[in-house]
Write a protein that binds this DNA or RNA. Sequence first.
DNA 1: TATCACGGTTCGGTGAATGAACTAACATGG
DNA 2: CCATGTTAGTTCATTCACCGAACCGTGATA
Lengths: 172, 172
Amino acid sequence: MALGKNYEGQDCSLARALEVIGERWTLLVVRDAMYGVRRYGDFLAHLDIPRAVLSQRLGALVEAGVLARSRYQDNPPRDEYVLTATGRELWVPMLALAQWGERNLGGDGPRRLFHHATCGARLDPVSRCPSCGTAVGLEEIEVRPGPGLTDNRDDPVSVLLRAPHRMLAPIS
Amino acid sequence: MALGKNYEGQDCSLARALEVIGERWTLLVVRDAMYGVRRYGDFLAHLDIPRAVLSQRLGALVEAGVLARSRYQDNPPRDEYVLTATGRELWVPMLALAQWGERNLGGDGPRRLFHHATCGARLDPVSRCPSCGTAVGLEEIEVRPGPGLTDNRDDPVSVLLRAPHRMLAPIS
DNA sequence: TATCACGGTTCGGTGAATGAACTAACATGG
DNA sequence: CCATGTTAGTTCATTCACCGAACCGTGATA
């Protein structure tokens, strides 16, 4: 039984959510998937996570219906991990949590800015576009580096993720 | 170094938030604090958490500025743990996460319903009241048991938390 | 045939979580 | 004045998950 699991005495939607995404690394895997990372090796390069832990997390997320495994080439056989509708719905809590961290935990300003791709306005914690008034889905969001970004990692995945790009768009 | 900590390679507000609230049990402690739990023994009774872990988590949350420790009686000296403004701001991500779990992880319906106390309408994932159109703060929210609640725990804290009550109102 | 890339699994060592027992400070009842 | 109870912890042995490094299997490439 994994660490973030087994809150069984807690009859609470939050506890049940934490059984799925509450383990160490899990939410960061989902975050990278939102950024467009899909391959085992790319997660590995970007997260500095032990390989065994990554395998376990990807498997658990697939089993929970957050990610889906899909064959993208046959020779050699290679699968990629893509967010399901359930997984994409994690966007709102993740954005809210990230903005909480940004507002309350000091630092040099936002690391990344999330903009409504079609109108350019920055999103508020609700993932609703203040300019259009509409709720903004992941595909319509563009990520841009923020003023506080001091990420100096030079693995290829990190470099790609520093450039402005649409959420969910595959990085490779 | 605790388990949920040390995502240091990740220059990301989400990772920094997870260093504070990403450890096992931590978010459930915060949830109980939102419900009005304030005392060590009450957290203990409601969470079934090992005493040593609870001590560590309460201390870490105080250090992170999510909870504040305050003396509520002198003989014998007793402290309680109360949410700070930073802690109360966790409400939006917590509600979003709980509703994600509710919508996507099956179950028999919501465990608890969050209503705008002054107008009675149920909150949406954004913590904005659909009837008034205003954003609703924690103090204005009433919790009521939902149709999916099967909580049969009989410790006094669980019993108190099953009755409708305002968020943040002390339970004892 | 040798080598490489990719996506894992295996394994020993470390550190955190767990549950039970113990401690300390003070209050209460007889 | 002693025994007991309440609250808020700490200590300790065991278990379990994380960690990092090494290894493995498949298919492509030189």
